[in-house]
Write a protein that binds this DNA or RNA. Sequence first.
RNA 1: CGGGGCGUAGCGCAGCCUGGUUAGCGCGCCUGCCUUGGGCGCAGGAGGUCGGCGGUUCGAAUCCGCCCGCCCCGACCA
Length: 582
Amino acid sequence: MRMSQAFIPTLREDPKEAEVASHLLLLRAGMIRKLAAGIYSVLPLGKRVLRKVETIIREEMDRAGALELYLPAVQPAELWEESGRWAKYGKELLRFQDRHEHSFCFGPTHEEVITDLVRHEIRSYRDLPRCFYQIQVKFRDEVRPRFGLIRGREFIMKDAYSFDRDEAGAEQSYKLMVQAYERIFTRMSLDFRMVQAEAGNIGGNFSHEFMALADTGEDLILFCDACGYSASQERAEVGKTDPPSAGEEKEAPRERVATPGQRTVEEVCGFLKVEPRKLIKTLIVQAQGEPLAVLIRGDLEINLNKVKRHLQADSVELAEPETIERVTGAPVGFAGPVGLKLKILADQSIRGIARGVTGANAADFHFINVKVGRDFPEPEYGDFRLARGGDACGKCGKTMREMRGLELGHTFKLGVKYTQALQATYLDPEGKETLMVMGCYGIGVTRALAAIVEQSHDQDGIIFPLAVAPYQVIVVPVETADDQIREKAEEIYQKLTEAGLEVLLDDRSERAGAKFKDADLLGIPFRITIGKRNLAQGRVEIKRRGEKTAQLEPAEMACARITELVAAARAAEKPGDKTIDE
RNA sequence: CGGGGCGUAGCGCAGCCUGGUUAGCGCGCCUGCCUUGGGCGCAGGAGGUCGGCGGUUCGAAUCCGCCCGCCCCGACCA
């Protein structure tokens, strides 16, 4: 492609709306433009990259035996009512009506539609297993779209759905997808980790996230270097830690002290001059409407997912102030376990506290010197805390590290959640109606593009991995007015293109500096520079984007050399088959 | 939804507090010359509902009210 014919509106200055690298550089490189909050146009250069990302995904999904199809983006409300999600999904679901006043939504995901299709079309065990996928635009009306393509409202997603005869088959399908995912992200040269995850809105009983490591990532991931355990913060289990104060301090009689207006951990600690870790924080939660108390050390945060899992409840949320007042007899901020007539769960962190501080279940009063087991019965212990770096690993007890991550993909073992709701059954060999067992697997395609840029850029712009670069080579004639230079550039451009490479020829009559700046900004992996002095000696310059120095090559060797370099770089990016089978 | 910030030319900004000819600057864009190894120089030029509506005033980009949009933090979330 000749740059004079292309449409690559690069920006010299930073658009003020962009703060993170991927957003900024994709805008500056002329790959995307914003239409509205969280809604972007993808320009030709960006589209080329996106297509490459999609191609990698297609190749690996096909290799895993998944079948590509295309499902409607506009979906009838009835289907969502059948699965129960019309009521449950909330405001993220964009709903609207057609001219007949029938309700529809713009699909944020496609479990309902695919399950509907499959229940009508698959009747026999002979037709199973099957895995379908599509690459398509989704819409989720996010509360807060941000960071450009990282969290858009409209975005492109690859979603796949597997249907199996039984749990064992579903596990096999899941494994296949996980392997495909590892190959996909490896081929994109992404630095990623697969972590255990919470299933969230999609549901199901088992799930992993694929996280690109990035400081701008919105999620925290926890790792254990010792045993390899890795999980999202929402999910990460924390091992038993030593009792924080047992043995250190003698017990003392419990006392009721006035703490007027001191509600938060911070306030109470300031007022009573104690460390947050001496506090026993008492949270009133509701599990399916049923109130109960959860205790946790004052310096820690609770993870309601863990409470939910422990109780095997469908929903667990913090109680409303009215409920708290009703069950504790005190306004918010003064709840405590002493004398509380509720089921009490406790995080391991409060085990053995001998002189703790708790609310007194009375306005403006706290207890000090509270001893667990003496002043209130030993509660039901569990792991309910939000994991942080430095916490003990839930598997081996060694210390975990935390890192920021950007969710690229999410895999779920759904079980029969949707097949049951929509009655997707098949006849087994004995002629018995049986529910299909389902899995679903998503990849944020547009987000993957953002993640690649996030992980691979420098001061000057993007550094695209070869596999997804919009063009592999950019040919830069330094003086377009010079016939010799122009002709040589033209010749190299033609030859490389004929050799099957994707080449951009900067035939604009810009100055060298401007061309170099743009070439760097766009992140094209290889640059061939043709200048007067070198050409006089029959040489041209070859430079790899991201490397400081360039190599001089005889002009007639340039094409062969580039072809060689591209092939070598391509090979280096390929996933080794070995790394996949762990 | 809570907190903070912003909306003036394609992009980045000044002007607003303290109302007053024709609303400025840099970059980009167009024309010409010059130049050509890291966004060069010179000359000329085009481009504006000052986010919208309403109000105050002789007069509003500027003051007041309402609304809309965007960005950041938080809550939330695949």
